[in-house]
Design a binder for these strands. Structure first.
Lengths: 332, 332
DNA sequence: CCTATTCCTGTAACCGTTTACACCAGCGCG
DNA sequence: CGCGCTGGTGTAAACGGTTACAGGAATAGG
């Protein structure tokens, strides 16, 4: 069941079979028909390893994420897989688990498998690793990290736009004391969200006193304690750096008997699946993960050898559900 | 940077380098040292495709799941990846998305990549596909599906045990009207859970009238409407086939102003991550996914050519949290 | 009608390993 | 001392494709 058998059956050379498989236009239509018939009859599937070895193309893409257990990632992974297999690529997903050591391992695993591109969807990645990939001549696309260069594209998320929409929404509901639950500052994306909050809040002449900011560590527990710390400051609305934080904050308020959105409004960030299933359903800034995956794939597959990487910006969008409402304190 | 360069640098033949890499005991310790030094100096990494081609071993495992977006799977995937890479295997994860067509594609993708084993962690899989894999000589391990055979192992979950613990827990709290929210009956695992409910409830002389059973489709929405249907039957406790169903039921009760666990107790199944983060925290029957992955890997890697598959049974365990409490109606 | 070009196909080298087999040195033993 | 082993190493043939190059047939152009 190798290419030679097919060649024999179709009465052509292996070269012709190979060309046929690869849709080379150098093969006469009539011949192609014969070859395809033989392939079907023999139920022949080319050996991908042999193919990769001799052609140098593995048709595998690498996807690096932090942790598949983090609800942000499954959608991303699924969408990436979907578009990749549509184009007949295989994908290997690796979890860094936020550990530099493990991240190193992820990269070398992918490089060893001779992937044709790596989508790095996590921001904690040492520059030296990126360089290593570049030296290997493998295209890269990152999320919110670094500046594009040779075979290096970047996808930027317009966090500021989402934050602006969120704050405008709250201001429209007459909120003035809007607190912020911050993510870990070592994450670039968390940093940007915080900066955007600061900037937009100021533009609206809102208090941004540091007492209105708490650290939520991007986890439910973190959001919970952050909200507890925030409570004495009497905010009327809270913007969280993360849906998990927002959910944690929600729990804290429910435990304290504070009504949401009656007394306090809450807005999250990401729009993970569960946000729609929480009570009250969470108003949140959606990050379009399907779009990101699609673009990431595009970036990798268009990064042919000498071409320079590009940079895209993807908008984020406020999804209004039930955790936000008019500010009671400032009414009338 | 291929094996020849290493051989030259170490002043040995490529065969010796190869043997060294593969820890063959036929190489003299002193030689091995020389070779490893050369490898390190040259920063040499063997070409995995060449290796797979000539040895016939790809060192890749396939993992078939339904949908990474279903919160049951991420833990499973993560654990599988962890143990696999510990043993220097790569893993390709594929989502069937509950579609037979796509499932077929998953299998052929994996077969094309010459995986050395496939873990099928989803029950909707046509027997013809399984046969196809077996004909290809690739070891299989399934979850709750089929009977073990040549290169075919199976992992069974003791759902009945978990259901028994759950019902005993409720009975201990003086509950008598225990309703059940059923999963889709085409899923074997859902069927087994339902059967176990029926059996154990009868053993305890509880009503199992069909009016106390509703279909929840294993989703939050399904659980929600199922609970609404169940409400007129005045159950004092509800056992759900799935955490998602349980969460949906919880929402329904909260919306109707029914206190949990004050008026009605709820128990879920699976112990997905979010169960701990719901209010009230969900009492649930845990399915030990890490354990499953570990065993699945073991099954695959021990399924050497002629060896017959094995069958394991993994216990499930009731995790008591805050969604269950004493039955008020039957107290004194 | 001859030559140049185009189109299609085949031959064979090569991709980077593994591994069967051959070989040789050194050793134990009768 | 000669023989058979054993242990370590090298040679070279696979593994199953791709592709540079060569070459023959058919077509076009003069």
């Amino acid at each position: 069941m190798d290419i030679r058998k097919v060649a024999a059956k179709a009465k052509v050379s292996t070269a012709t079979v190979s060309r046929t498989i690869n849709n080379s236009d150098a093969v006469a239509p009539a011949t192609a028909v014969k070859v395809w018939a033989a392939i079907r009859d023999l139920n022949y599937h080319p050996n991908t390893h042999a193919r990769s070895l001799s052609s140098g193309k593995s048709h595998i893409l690498g996807l690096i994420i932090s942790d598949i257990t983090n609800p942000f990632f499954p959608d991303l992974v699924k969408a990436f897989e979907t578009v990749a297999i549509e184009r007949h690529y295989e994908v290997i997903v690796t979890n860094t688990e936020y550990s530099p050591e493990r991240t190193k391992l992820c990269v070398s695993r992918l490089l060893n498998r001779k992937v044709e591109g790596i989508a790095i969807m996590t921001s904690e990645m040492e520059p030296s690793l990126i360089e290593q990939v570049q030296r290997a001549g493998v295209p890269i696309v990152t999320l919110d990290t670094g500046t594009p260069g040779k075979r290096f594209s970047n996808i930027k998320l317009d966090y500021a736009g989402g934050v602006r929409q969120a704050i405008q929404h709250l201001v429209g509901l007459h909120h003035e004391r809007i607190a912020f639950i911050r993510g870990p500052q070592r994450l670039k994306s968390a940093q940007i969200r915080y900066d955007a909050y600061l900037k937009v809040a100021k533009q609206h002449n809102l208090t941004t006193s540091s007492s209105l900011v708490a650290d939520g560590e991007h986890s439910i527990e973190g959001g919970f304690t952050a909200m507890l710390n925030l409570l004495p400051q009497k905010p009327t609305a809270v913007l969280a750096s993360n849906d998990l934080c927002a959910i944690g904050a929600l729990h804290a308020l429910q435990q304290k008997g504070v009504d949401v959105p009656g007394a306090i409004s809450i807005i999250g960030f990401d729009d993970i699946n569960f946000s729609r299933h929480i009570r009250p359903e969470l108003t949140t800034v959606r990050i379009p993960r399907t779009e990101i995956s699609r673009l990431a794939f595009e970036a990798l597959s268009s990064s042919s050898d000498s071409e320079n990487g590009r940079e895209w910006t993807i908008p984020t969008e406020l999804v209004i559900r039930r955790s936000t409402g008019p500010c009671q304190r400032n009414r009338s």
